[in-house]
């Protein structure tokens, strides 16, 4: 009987498949966000009687948000680096830093939304604001989901240590986090910078 060795093989194959499956899911996410971008580009000049991008965007705040998210992507990379060195403490610390930065980003984004509403740009104002809020909101919802998800994974990490399963889960979560950073880069470039220039 070799039943005590089969599960481990199976697990490693299963985690390989999980990671591949998640990459394919990220492919779907690219399509999802590009649909949002496409809709935004179609509607961005349709401000009806409401404000346009230049009227409401604050470059300084958005730049800070960008740096926070870029840094969190870096720290989640460091966390995975620690994980691969079997350094549970480093992994935990860098992931918590990542989560705090994510929370900071969310805080700023919520403030940004409040600011827009004060400027008279609610989601119901125009085609432009509908597309803007939905694009930003979908990204923000992803970040929120990521924070809750990674927190749950950290609980599992503390309980179980670095195992085949916990490590693959955390690796997948880090892919997700980097991906949100990529999406943000495009939002920063094609929503904010483009909006300020044009």
């Amino acid at each position: 009987m070799t039943s005590h060795t089969t599960p481990l093989e199976y697990q490693s194959k299963q985690t390989q498949m999980n990671i591949l499956g998640f990459w394919i899911f990220l492919g779907a996410e690219i399509v999802l966000f590009s649909t949002l971008f496409a809709s935004y580009f179609v509607l961005e000049h349709n401000t009806a009687s409401g404000p346009a991008g230049q009227d409401i965007f604050i470059l300084k705040d958005v730049l800070i948000q960008t740096f926070i998210l870029l840094t969190s992507s870096f720290t989640s990379g460091l966390a995975i680096h620690s994980m691969r060195n079997q350094d549970k403490r480093g992994l935990l610390i860098w992931m918590i830093v990542t989560l705090l930065l994510g929370a900071g980003f969310l805080y700023m984004e919520i403030n940004e939304f409040i600011h827009y509403v004060h400027e008279g740009a609610t989601i119901q104002t125009s085609g432009f604001t509908a597309a803007l809020f939905t694009l930003l909101g979908t990204h923000g919802a992803h970040v929120t989901f990521g924070i809750i998800w990674i927190s749950l994974l950290l609980v599992q990490l503390v309980r179980r240590g670095i195992t085949v399963q916990t490590s693959s889960k955390l690796f997948i979560a880090s892919l997700y986090w980097h991906f949100l950073d990529v999406v943000w880069i495009f939002i920063f470039t094609f929503v904010y910078l483009k909006g300020m220039v044009m």
């Binding site: 591949l20 690219i30 399509v31 590009s34 971008f37 496409a38 580009f41 179609v42």
Partner: peptide, 26 residues
Amino acid sequence: GKEGIINVINMVNSIILALIIVFGSI
């Protein structure tokens, strides 16, 4: 990993789709 080349193909495919969707829609 073993899927390196698959991941790259997957990403390239997704980027092509993204370009079709964005530029096509516009």
